[in-house]
Design a protein around this nucleic acid. Sequence first.
DNA 1: TTTATTTACGCAATCGTTCCCGGAGGCAGT
DNA 2: ACTGCCTCCGGGAACGATTGCGTAAATAAA
Lengths: 333, 333
Amino acid sequence: MLKPTIKDIAKALNLSTSTVSRALRDSYEISSGTKQKILEYAQAVNYTPNPIALSLRENKSHSICVIVPQIANAFFSEVINGIDETAYRRGYHVVIFQTHEQYEREIRDLNSGLARRADGVVISLSGTTTDFDHFRQLQAEQVPIVFFDRVPPFDNCHKVVADNFAGAYEGTRYCCPRAKNGLLTLPALLFCLSPENGWKGIKPASRTSGRLWKRGLSGFALFDTAETLQTIEEIIHTEHPDSFFLSSERLALYSLKGIKKNQHLLPPDLEIIGFSNNPYNGLLDLPFISIQQPAFEMGKQAADLLIDAIESRQKQTSFKKIVLKPTILAANA
Amino acid sequence: MLKPTIKDIAKALNLSTSTVSRALRDSYEISSGTKQKILEYAQAVNYTPNPIALSLRENKSHSICVIVPQIANAFFSEVINGIDETAYRRGYHVVIFQTHEQYEREIRDLNSGLARRADGVVISLSGTTTDFDHFRQLQAEQVPIVFFDRVPPFDNCHKVVADNFAGAYEGTRYCCPRAKNGLLTLPALLFCLSPENGWKGIKPASRTSGRLWKRGLSGFALFDTAETLQTIEEIIHTEHPDSFFLSSERLALYSLKGIKKNQHLLPPDLEIIGFSNNPYNGLLDLPFISIQQPAFEMGKQAADLLIDAIESRQKQTSFKKIVLKPTILAANA
DNA sequence: TTTATTTACGCAATCGTTCCCGGAGGCAGT
DNA sequence: ACTGCCTCCGGGAACGATTGCGTAAATAAA
């Protein structure tokens, strides 16, 4: 049997749909006798309101659109977990989209999420997004939107980020004192970590210790796993670094593989530091000091911020930026 | 400005909504002149059909409901990735729910997913689900549903699983020949791996090598991370095993932490084997042989199976069971 | 008894779209 | 000229729910 509708109930009880609807919403206009009859019958046939009909009427879907570069990633999946936690608690559904680091898919995901009348968007920018007109557009249309982790370079929007400056600073301070031949970084994602914060986070620390800094390759080639591996191997062979700074989760994994494979070429007191939320970090065979972003908390706060924005009917004028502290996890801890 | 509707276009061009609708669907009943005018105008105002209205009319949402125990898990997030891949390709949206291993939430997730008129469900059972009436109910209501990995013990449903028998068999064969004091397993999830397969997978291997097998604790306490850690430490202190079989991703992580912490109590040629999809497995400081389930492929196939079922209008009478081969990843490979 | 007020419900529009009818006008065949 | 048949388009119901408005009956106030 198909899902019963209000019409079915009305017909069965010889009432009008308006009466049934009002009874179900416990309106004062309906006598308690009628109310009870309707409630009982609805219970009996297991009536549930059709949210699609409601969405159509109210132009609201009670769902939020979550757009991330990739789901299968320790950081993003934990953020999604946090978003889900809050959304579930506050009665929203979570619809997921992946950009696979592609600007074009970001646009398409955004369009298709909003075509479905998502009430708002939580997003972490794709690695190839350098143009932000599509977000300007959404802002003009008053679509509630919250950015997390990889955020756009302008201020009039809600943001939830980790304090990557502090993370990188503390992390490199931890690492540098023992670094001898320089610190090498693969800054593929640093522009996302925010250009002003990522490098600032590293630079002061490096000046403190007075070490040589050298950039590795930059750019998006490093999103490709094979290329990451190849790049790190090249660097190892030509530069013989004794320390590494790995600026993102995805980068970390394949860099570590490359380092492990060529470990015989590297000094025994090798230092590696990087952003990573992988839960296995404490169990690695490599001296990997990870800067762990508070992913779950970021997700929770981003969702709360978004739902607050959705539910406050008034036009957004002020914007929040929430900054959370990362934690440093020493190798083999 | 709000999204333009068919009605807006009709009004602007002095036509009826029927004509506009037909023109947009390229109906033969509309003259090419009119058609072109409508198409051009639609393009100009950036018209996109309202999928909610369509859903209401067709009683179809073009979205699939995905229910997993947890998102932030290397295995499940990769499965979701696979589901998303297929769903995106075939024009469906993915709505995610987590049970957190709770039967009650499984019921609620199922209800709320279907209340939103999801066209079908892809699900991996919660660890505390022992009763399957809710699925029987859905089957009676002809809701398309595909189970993966943790599947119910009856046959008349679609399933996508890894060949855990082969995985465990191969894995233990790999491991056992060198095991001396017996193999110890934490079978918390083995009932999910399917009672007949999980243990069968281990037993033949153990008989082959003639070793002693001993069960660790069973039950759901092991879903709790702190308790997993405590349990594994107890086992280490009392049993002094020289090998471990860890039957799930979540179990693996905390067991490994316990093993690492107490490594000094264990023999140097320790053997550990278990199901795990963590990408860092090859980089661990422990001799962990992981049985990797083809998570992405499982997700893809599950989604294809589901969408096929959704789109074949006829009542399902035969059911598919897809079995995929796991791969064994040697330690430090 | 008449009038005013409340109680308890029904009617119909609305959201955006599709699609079954029906119908006007043009053209050819008889 | 009459019938038949296309071509091209509009009217209106339907999907499921909510809600402003109207109104009958019941009750209260005069």
